[in-house]
């Protein structure tokens, strides 16, 4: 993928991340260099992108942040970890869906579609995929850090 196009894709998903945080939890994201600390338990969600361009979006955040997002959206605490996983899955779906919408409206005919999210929980999670052009960005929120990694097929 051409670098300009890849950069545009990244901007779309990063904007969608910020917009979704603001809409659902009234949380502003500020750039930071660090990822969520390795000692904290994290939840990660991976959504695939299929169509003219193939890729995946990986979003990770501290479990405590997901708990707070859940409470903000539902007005009650999550009953168990599965609730948090389901919530993060839908949260990620909304971020990637919002980003994909802008990309599809710009690159007409791309017909990019999402695959249902997969959720992982652990203290340290990395994704390494050969042949993928990727970019990663970390943000700080008042509720804890969040990381987004965007990868698309091609050099």
């Amino acid at each position: 993928m051409e670098q300009d196009k890849f950069n545009y894709f990244c901007n779309c998903f990063e904007d969608a991340l910020k917009k979704t945080f603001a809409q659902l939890a009234e949380v502003d994201l500020s750039n930071c260099d660090s990822q969520p600390a390795d000692s904290t338990k994290k939840l990660s969600s991976v959504v695939g992108v299929v169509g003219v361009n193939k890729g995946r979006i990986h979003i990770a955040m501290a479990e405590d942040l997901v708990k707070k997002l859940y409470e903000s959206a539902n007005g009650e605490s999550a009953t168990d970890e599965m609730d948090l996983c389901f919530y993060l899955a839908e949260f990620t779906n909304m971020i990637t869906g919002s980003g994909i919408t802008v990309v599809n409206n710009t690159y007409r005919g791309s017909d990019l579609r999402l695959t249902p999210p997969a959720i992982f929980a652990d203290e340290k999670l990395d994704i390494a995929t050969p042949q993928v052009q990727s970019a990663q960005k970390s943000y700080q929120t008042k509720l804890g850090p969040v990381m987004i990694e965007i990868g698309f097929e091609g050099e």
Binding site: G97, S98, I100, T101, N104, N105, D111, L114
Partner: peptide, 22 residues
């Protein structure tokens, strides 16, 4: 969560009454 112009047009052509985004 998706709501691009092509998708919403296709859905409405098929008979979907309204298209809302999450």
């Amino acid at each position: 969560a998706m709501g691009d112009d092509d998708l919403t047009s296709k859905a409405k052509r098929m008979g979907v009454k309204l298209f809302l985004t999450k």
